[in-house]
Design a protein around this nucleic acid. Structure first.
Lengths: 347, 347
DNA sequence: CTGAAAGCGCTAACAC
DNA sequence: GTGTTAGCGCTTTCAG
């Protein structure tokens, strides 16, 4: 129906040239001093027949696709899903569409995906990068394609990024556990050298060291399969029955951790204090409810898309990179109330 | 770097014609009886210089974009996020990319989005349709664009679709509550006439009627904003303190329902049995854990993408529509254990 | 103010 | 077996 009209059709029917139509459609009427009446006539006609420019042809010609590539670790993780959702909204409102994909934190997969995106001529990239894609990102930058990192960044490469103050957050959470009388505090995390995980670990270590306590760090290999995370956790907790509190490094480990705790028949809060990074429904609705470090999703998404849109609108690639750190909010709940059994003094 | 090469460049450098290169690259070498050595030479060179065909130009020429448009209600809802994730994986493996968007169940927004997708020349559509987009969908079909519905369908239009047996599922869940001694069972749902919600309501009503009980149906307006759902729920529960069990129509109402129950200081299972449609972490990890009707996400996603890929590969639009209904799995947990207080006999 | 025309990179008749 | 070439629909330079 309305699919066959092209700019030449409408030019012919109106007895004007394509150029004129094109100028009018692209808001260059004034600049080109096209008569107001012609402009109106064209616009009216275009409206009537429901003509839509073919964006493929447009992209081919202009090199702009109005598509943003979004690469997250896993779109089914509520943290990324929420951010993606907000980014999507803002992008649509600004005339951009999103192509997304989940990297699974897999370097090779991500490299492939970057190629797919380049191939599609996406105008800009938003990514939560896995390790080892420095070269690819540099290539993008070199080609003047804006890249905004989120959640983590590549330390060796100067890009825009939006992260939260991971170190301060886990430091505070750990200190909170210590203040509430816990002494054998484990930090359970993914075995990853990515910046966000490294910082979270440092925050924990710092608090532990400052209080002269002993570190209990358990690293687990990232996996989509929950069982592959729950099982090592069960083992670890069995092996360390003296642990009296756990700080989980992400919502995913946190959720699996709760499963492990359930499976062992342990009771959160009574037997074991729990705090997790990343807040979401599960933690709020658990009983006892789980203390969690909430990332300000909306602020993150807003900053990301604003930054990218700015880059897109002004070809100022060479500008100084913007690197924004946002504070988290620590939601204290029942899972980390002050310890009831004898509290050891700090040495 | 590798962005400037076009097919003509590589043809020139190799002293062959574009056609030849194009044929080779598109696997038509045999068909066109191009010499094996030439094929190899070209492939080797292409490999070396890292030439990638420009898919925009390709799409413009062929009318195929290798993009699938995915429209769900809300990508941040775990049900849709999980399905999207699985669809994404399968699509990528088959050379398709996904453009997605959240409809918010908003008819106008969805119409816009369909236009955006058409404009992008997506090859196929997967959608969880809101009400009132019959005309748009018919238009797509008329233009021979495959559309697969998921989660719900438009009763007046013959399309492929994948749904679960909603009616049987809620019927079973309601009967389960009755069997366990509950007599004042509420069904809390979104005020929607969409097929999946209508069927779930019917399943509940059927079981209630069969047992000569009274219906308690509460409909709530769909909203992203949790508070707008929790509040009416709190009111409703206050007004009907005699209700002894609730069946929630979706995970979203279910989650909000748990909040409402918490807010009122009611205890799940002791004061109120609970079952929800859609299983996910929250229900499994709550304590008491919440009985839930689990949709087989993987089976749904698999069927959806298989169906669509089939359509895409064989231009058999006129084939009979495939309409697949999959069974759910009822996960019985602690929230709906047999009632302890005096159980009224069924009349 | 408006029109002709040169491509953007690729595919596929059609000719040789 | 291989080369020529006409577009796909649009933007934009350059001439009127």
């Amino acid at each position: 129906m309305n699919k066959k009209l092209s700019i030449v059709d409408i030019a012919n029917q109106l007895n004007v040239s394509q150029t004129t139509v094109s100028f009018i459609l692209n808001g260059k009427a004034q600049e080109k001093r096209i008569s107001v009446e012609l402009v109106e006539r064209v616009q009216k006609f275009v409206e009537e027949v429901g003509y839509k420019p073919n964006s493929l042809a447009k992209s081919l010609r202009t090199g702009k696709s109005n598509i943003i590539g979004l690469m997250v670790e896993d779109i089914s993780n509520p943290f990324f899903a929420s951010i993606a959702r907000m980014i999507e909204d803002r992008a649509y409102k600004n005339g951009y569409k999103i192509i997304y994909c989940s990297t699974d934190n897999d370097t090779d997969k991500t490299k492939d995906l970057i190629n797919v995106f380049r191939d599609r001529h996406v105008d800009g990239y938003i990514m939560a990068p896995p390790e080892g894609i420095e070269n690819e990102v540099e290539m993008l930058l070199k080609n003047n394609l804006p890249v905004v990192m989120v959640d983590r960044y590549l330390p060796d490469i100067a890009t825009d990024y939006i992260v939260v103050d991971n170190l301060a957050s886990t430091h505070k959470a750990t200190q909170h556990l210590i203040d509430n009388g816990y002494r054998k505090i484990a930090f359970i995390t993914f075995s990853s050298m990515q910046t966000q995980m490294a910082d979270r670990l440092q925050g924990y270590k710092k608090a532990i060291k400052e209080n002269g306590l002993k570190e209990y760090v358990k690293r687990i290999k990232f996996s989509q399969n929950q069982e592959l995370i729950v099982e090592p956790l069960v083992d670890y907790l069995k092996k360390h029955p003296d642990i009296d509190a756990i700080l989980f490094g992400t919502n995913h480990v946190g959720t699996c951790g709760l499963r492990a705790i359930n499976r062992l028949g342990l009771r959160v809060s009574e037997d074991l204090a729990v705090v997790s990074f990343d807040d979401y429904d599960v933690f709020e609705l658990s009983s006892p409810s789980i203390s969690a470090i909430a990332q300000p999703l909306e602020a993150i998404a807003d900053n990301v898309i604003t930054l990218l849109l700015n880059r897109l609108n002004s070809n100022t690639q060479s500008d100084k990179q913007q690197q924004i750190t946002i504070s988290t909010h620590f939601n204290v709940r029942s899972s980390s109330v002050p310890k009831k059994t004898p509290v050891l003094p700090l040495s």
